[in-house]
């Protein structure tokens, strides 16, 4: 990908729940293939990530993905943006791995058998070959998160937002998951606490108390963050 698809723009974005301000004055244009949001719990980084696919709408300012505003064209934006959450158990919605991936294709107009075939293909491409008929709840934590990722990748989005996808995984599965992210053609926005997974990223945005406090390459940004939390 050349970086022309899935450009994400935040323009004076703010968000408040009642009186509680969680984000304020965010101006960012994300054109890099690998971007990470780093920050403490409650810093607002998750809320910012959720704005990319319109799960949360800003209370001030604008968000645009490829020029589309999620507030106006939520459905169109969600077709461009895939989202992986922290807890794989709540992302797997159907009883078997194959059915779960095929769920994403329910409105594709493909026949049932074609949907099942596409699902099995995507599973096979990402290390879950032969698991299509496997009960989803019997997968390991790492496999479940892979399955959640497959449920998004089968739709071939331009952007993949991952909200702390490795928090519940062991170290090996963390590494494996991030390696896999590195190979994807998609633009990836990763929200994370795992600072040692960021080496291959092009840009790291540090968010603290609802504001961008650093925006740099991984090494200086991570150093800034470590100083911040010390």
């Amino acid at each position: 990908m050349s970086g022309h698809e899935g450009v994400i723009e935040f323009e004076g974005v703010g968000h408040a729940y009642g009186d509680r301000v969680v984000l304020e004055g965010i101006d960012l244009t994300l054109t890099e293939r690998r971007v990470a949001f780093v920050g403490l719990n409650g810093s607002g980084k998750s809320t910012l990530a959720r704005m990319i696919n319109g799960l949360v709408l800003p209370t001030s300012g604008r968000v645009r993905v490829d020029g589309l505003d999620p507030a106006e064209s939520g459905a169109a934006v969600r077709r461009k943006v895939g989202f992986v959450f922290t807890n794989p158990d709540s992302q797997i919605v159907m009883p078997t791995a194959g059915e779960d991936v095929a769920f994403s294709l329910r409105r594709s107009g493909l026949s049932r058998s074609e949907r099942a075939r596409r699902a099995a293909e995507v599973l096979a491409e990402h290390g879950l070959d032969g698991y299509a008929d496997h009960p989803a709840h019997q997968l390991s934590g790492g496999q479940k998160q892979l399955l959640a990722l497959c449920g998004m990748l089968v739709l071939d989005p331009d952007v993949l937002v991952c909200d702390e996808p490795t928090t519940l995984l062991d170290l090996r599965n963390k590494r494996r998951f991030v390696e896999l992210l590195g190979r994807l053609r998609q633009r990836v926005v990763l929200v994370t606490h795992d600072l040692d997974l960021l080496d291959d990223f092009e840009r790291v945005v540090v968010i603290d108390d609802g504001r961008v406090v650093a925006d740099d390459e991984p090494a200086p940004a991570v150093k800034y963050y470590r100083d911040l939390v010390r």
Partner: peptide
């Protein structure tokens, strides 16, 4: 809480968009 998270996951997968 599971219902809330599942709701977010379904919304992210386009549920309710058409």
């Amino acid at each position: 809480k599971h219902a809330d998270e599942l709701g977010d996951a379904l919304a992210a997968r386009g549920e309710g968009d058409h």
